[in-house]
Amino acid sequence: MSTLAIIIPYYKIDFFEKTIQSVALQTNKNFVLYIGNDKSPHDPLPIINKYFADEDFHYFNYEKNVGGKNLALQWERILGNVKEDWFQILGDDDVIPENFIEECYKSITDCEDKNIKVIKFTHDWIDENDSLIQSHNLNTKTISSVDLILRKHQGLVYSSLSENIFKTSQFRKYKFEKIPLAWGSDDLAILRFSDYGNIYYNMSANVLVRVFSGSISGSVEMQKDKELAFIRYLERLIINHSLFFPKPFIDKLIDDYLMFCHLNKQTANYGIAKTVLRNQGFESFLKTIKKIYYINILGKNKKV
């Protein structure tokens, strides 16, 4: 029985053949492929059948689009069918190298021995012409999931979804946090699915993540949406995960969050004040409650 599932949430056909071809070219074929069509206007089956026989993949042609509401809903819809112990969510325009599955199994063996539940690979950003934008290599065998997020917020490292392998039992336990555009949902999953522990880092296979105008990451038109989604990501990080981070880091996140809400006329969550109470005491808690109240009142008045 295969231990690893590759999940492709499909919607865009632009680079889908390159994605499917990279999966078909794996030197180790011991994986199960799941493809979920999120009511795309373009039928992917002619491309899939070019590289895989019907019995070699599971295909779900959904009648309702949910990725437009939240990408994590599409991920979870497909994951409901997965029986394998580990899984990758591969973007429908991203590419894995030929030795990816082979390296996954090497990593899984080590992870099972060390009780590590998340694997991350090196990755490159590429554009629509397959040209390299930027390489990302942490140059370490393991890294704390908390340290990864700290370093990402400092602009020292970059992370995306496709280069991660997650343990299925951890997903079933926690699920993905639903943030608009799933912006940061993968980062919060890394924290929670790892139980805030170590990530196994594989430097022997390099995932190619496509960043271009048609992707969320590369879209200029969606910049405002991404900024608003980032506010909600900060909210979740502060409220649900702050206990595992240094207090000065969380205090700065709270200041950033409240400022973002104010500048973007967004409702601030009163739950933030509970973290302030724990970190800074009752006086600061009262000041934060007052600040959130005025942010929300001013935001409502400006929207009218």
Rank of each mutant, 00 (worst) to 15 (best):
F212D: 15
R151C: 02
S144G: 12
S213D: 14
W125H: 14
D147K: 09
R151Y: 00
R151E: 14
A189K: 13
D110M: 03
W183M: 07
K175L: 10
I126Q: 04
V207Y: 06
A205T: 05
E163T: 04
F171D: 02
Y200M: 06
S159Y: 00
D147T: 09
S194C: 06
E102K: 05
K224P: 00
D187L: 15
I89V: 15
Q170R: 14
D113C: 03
Y174P: 13
M222W: 11
D127H: 10
L208A: 04
I96P: 02
T142H: 03
E103V: 01
K106I: 04
A189Y: 13
N99Y: 06
T168A: 09
I149Q: 05
L188R: 08
K106R: 14
L161R: 11
F193V: 09
S215P: 04
D92C: 06
V209I: 14
G197Q: 11
F166H: 13
A182W: 04
S144E: 04
F171W: 15
F193K: 12
S213Y: 05
A229C: 08
W125D: 11
F100L: 01
D127C: 02
N164H: 15
N129Q: 11
E177K: 12
G184W: 08
N139V: 00
N198H: 02
K114C: 01
K114W: 03
I101F: 03
S215E: 10
T122D: 14
I133Y: 06
K175S: 15
Y196R: 05
E221A: 14
D147L: 01
G184D: 02
V211R: 13
E103K: 14
I216Q: 12
I143K: 07
L156I: 11
I89T: 09
L191C: 08
K120Y: 01
H153M: 13
K117L: 04
G184K: 01
Q134S: 11
Y201L: 10
N164F: 08
D186G: 08
D124R: 05
I149F: 03
S131I: 03
I231V: 15
T168Q: 12
L90F: 10
N164S: 12
Y174H: 15
C111G: 09
I101Y: 01
K224Q: 11
H123C: 04
E227L: 10
R172I: 04
S213N: 12
N164R: 07
S107L: 05
L132K: 06
E163S: 09
